[in-house]
Every structure is written in structure tokens, then in C-alpha cells.
Amino acid sequence: MLNRRLLKNLDFTLIITVISIIITSLIIIGSATHINTPGEDRYWYVQRQGLFAIANFLIIFVMLHFDYKSLSRYANILYFINLVMLLAVMFVGQSALGAQRWIQIGPISLQPSEFSKLIMIIALANILDKRTGKLNTIKDVIPIFVYVGIPFLLVMKQPDLGTALVFIAILFGMIYVAGINTRLLMMIFGAGIAFMPIFWHFLKDYQKMRLTVFINPNVDPLGSGYHIIQSKIAIGSGMLLGKGLFEGTQSQLNFLPENHTDFIFAVVGEELGFIGATIILLLYFIMLYRGVKIAGVARDNFGTLLATGISSMLTFHVLVNVGMNAGIMPVTGIPLPFMSYGVSSLTTNLVSIGILLNIYMRRQKILF
């Protein structure tokens, strides 16, 4: 059994916030899918998402029994497993929507690139823990970039530009907290910006079109620009109070594509309006604030780096997905944490929250 003193140190604000987002998610997923779900079970997606949410909370409870510091001992093994999973996708993975990202295990489709984000955070935290305050030259950071670059390239090969960009957000968030020389960091940013015109030639045609329609969706209004146009219509039509649950025309009449996954925030905007969307964003702000707070009070450098990586990942997801739905960010296929339907994404995010809770719970040395 868990020490009662440890349980008292749980971050109940974070727990309540995440549960609130998940409950809202189940309601919105039900609204988005109940008409178009094949078969007799109209709430199949809701039941599946809810079941995996409960299962993952049980996993979190088990995780709390173990000190997060033990993750450092398995970091190299996890990194190797990560590479094996990403390579497996290339050879036995299944394709959907123009990308080969999924592995089918019985009735469950798993997306290894989702799990790779958390594994990368753990592995990178282990590496940086030994190099904090020692990232002063290009020579110091090259091994770090190569370490992240290998899984980054494997994810790009799928192709999954969205997850690859998440890797970059995690990397820069963690090396900043690890004390990288500020001037060196600015030089790396500058080099990245200078490399963008060259990077353009490595993108797939559909990825180039997504960036093009971000600037002008009317370039391809019935193709690549269709998602953005319909999402903006849905959010705008919700106005202040929204049309009401199960009453959104863009979602219910199937005008809005991927309304239960990538574009679920547009459903929130249409059915719950500006006020409902603002409440959801406030919940995300609380969640991200708690993540940053936990990074600041962690008992050791490894815990700080873990919390920083998780907070960087979740922040990037929220900013890009909400921006994508509002038409101010390119469409990248990045899900909204705890809101978008998806077993792999939900599992990764909830396990990440479990690690945050573990770090906060052990922020002080407690005798067992």
C-alpha cells in the first residue's frame, strides 16, 4: 500500500483538471460520432475511450507505488524499444490517410509514434541529467541532437510531421532547462530558420499543400483546404453560447472531417460556443501550469527534466491543435490531449500525467 503521507502529497488540482477534460471529451465525442457510427451501437467510440481511460487510471495508480527515479535505470532499454517499434512500423505497419503509422494487435490499432514521445522524454532526461550545465558548445550538443535525431528521422519516414515537430518542442524545452548556453541556443534557432527553405524540398506533396492552404485555404477549398474552412465555419457559427450539445450542424451533418479526433475543438466551439471553448482552454492552462509548477518543485534534476519534457509536449499539442482548428496554424494531425479520440494518444498522455503526479508526490524526501 502507498504511504499515507505520500498520498496526501498528490496534486489533486491536476487530477481533477484532467478528469474534467476527459469527461467533457466523452460528451463531445458522443455528440460528434453518435450519428455516423456504423452498426447498432451509436456510442461505441465513447465506450471505448472511457474504458481505456479507466484502464489507464489504474495504470497510474500502480505507477505511484514506484519512485519515478527508477525510470532512469531503464532509459536506454526504452530508447532501444522505441527504435524497434518505429522500425516495425516501416515493415509491418498499416497505412491510413496517406501514412504508415499503425501496428495492428488484435482489435487494437497502436500508433508507436505516440508512445515514442514519452519514451523520448524519459531517455533524454536521463542523458541531460548528467550534462546539465555542460551544454556550452556545439560539440556538447551534437550528441544530444544525434540521440533525438535518429527516432526523429524514423518518424519523418512514416511520414508523421506532427510528431516529429513534437520531438523538437520537447528537445528545446528540455535543453533550455538543462542550462544550454543562451547564445548557442539562439545560433541553433537561427540555423533552423535558415534551413527551412531546404527542408521544404524534403516534405511530401500533401505536406507542402497543407502549408500552402494554411496561407490561403481557398487554393484548394474542396481538398487540402476543406478541413480548415469547415473548422472555422464551425467555431464561428457557435458564437457566444453555442448551438447546444448534439445540435452542431457542421459536425452532425458530417461537413466537418475528423470531428472526433483532430478537429474535436471545432465541435466544442460550435456546440458550446465561445464560453465553452474558453472554459476548456482554462482547464488546459491549469493543467500546463501545474506541469511547470511540478518541474520547479521536483526533488532532483531528473524529475525537473521529466516534468519539463512532459509540459513541453502537452503545451505544444494544445497550442498547435487549437491553432489548427482556429485556422492560425497549419494542419499537422496533432491530437488535442485528453479530448481527441485515440487509444495511443490517451494512454501516452495519461501515463505522462502519472509521472507528473509521481514527481510531485515525492517532491520531498519521505520516509517509507
Rank of each mutant, 00 (worst) to 15 (best):
M239Y: 12
I233C: 09
A194L: 15
D11W: 03
N36K: 15
L97K: 14
Q207K: 06
T315M: 14
M1W: 07
Y45T: 08
D300P: 00
N126G: 02
D140N: 12
I355V: 07
M313H: 07
M361R: 08
I233V: 14
I108N: 10
S237E: 14
V318A: 00
S340R: 04
R131E: 03
T182E: 11
M186W: 14
D300F: 06
V320M: 09
I310W: 02
L367A: 10
I54E: 12
L346Y: 10
G342A: 12
D160P: 01
V322F: 05
L282W: 11
D67P: 02
Y79M: 04
L118G: 03
G242V: 05
F152Q: 00
M85C: 15
D160E: 05
D129V: 03
S113R: 03
T249P: 07
N325S: 13
H260S: 12
Y79P: 01
L2N: 07
G238D: 06
G333D: 05
Y68S: 00
M120G: 06
R42A: 15
F255H: 11
G269A: 04
L305C: 02
V62N: 05
N126Y: 10
I168S: 10
L256R: 11
V331N: 02
I60F: 11
G106Y: 12
Y74R: 03
G323S: 10
L7S: 08
S109I: 07
A55D: 11
N349M: 12
N36W: 11
A88M: 15
P337Q: 10
S109W: 07
S95T: 15
I59T: 14
D220L: 05
I198R: 04
P38C: 12
Q207F: 05
A298Y: 04
L83Y: 11
L87E: 05
L118W: 03
L124T: 00
V18P: 09
G39K: 10
L283F: 14
F115M: 14
L256D: 09
E270T: 06
H65T: 12
F145L: 15
H260A: 12
